[in-house]
């Protein structure tokens, strides 16, 4: 797997940080350490979004699928996503997770707007559900990578 950091940039980063490391005697850190509450929050929001999609899919084309029946669900999702964003902001070196949670808030807001206008087709529901999965997989993948890195640091005694 390759990552989007050019070789020249990595070498420059490596050299400058090696000097900092040797002079400070501690491990370098570019990204916040793993936070269990963040991972649990992402999983909770994912579960609630998946439940929302299941309910809409089941009732699509009937009065039960109308937006008015889901206002409280969207409000709860916005609260959960805002709490995730607030926590992400409060953790040092956590700009990536913070930005991801901001995008998630925007995406949930758009899902609510789309539902308010009336879900136009089953295809649209399938696409948005797929988007939700991509978002949650990406966010969890990053949190679990932080966890692996944090575990390595603990094993090394740093």
């Amino acid at each position: 797997m390759t990552y989007p950091i050019s070789r020249a940039r990595t070498v420059a980063l490596f050299c400058s940080l090696a000097i900092v490391l040797i002079s400070s005697g501690c491990a370098v850190q570019f990204v916040s350490r793993y936070d269990e509450t963040t991972e649990k929050s992402i999983t909770t929001i994912q579960r609630d979004v998946e439940r929302l999609f299941q309910e809409i899919e089941r009732s699509l084309g009937t009065p039960e699928a109308r937006y008015e029946n889901y206002v409280a669900v969207y409000e709860q999702l916005q609260i959960e996503a805002t709490m995730l964003n607030t926590r992400a902001q409060a953790i040092d070196m956590n700009s990536i997770t913070t930005e991801q949670s901001e995008q998630l808030i925007g995406w949930l807001n758009n899902l609510q707007r789309l539902h308010r206008t009336g879900i136009p087709a089953v295809d649209v529901l399938a696409v948005t559900r797929q988007q939700a999965r991509q978002i949650f997989v990406a966010m969890l993948k990053f949190e679990l990578a932080k966890k692996r890195q944090s575990d390595t640091v603990i094993v090394d005694g740093r």
Partner: peptide, 8 residues
């Protein structure tokens, strides 16, 4: 983020 973790 994965790139930054790899560099770290």
């Amino acid at each position: 983020g994965l790139g930054l973790l790899a560099a770290e």
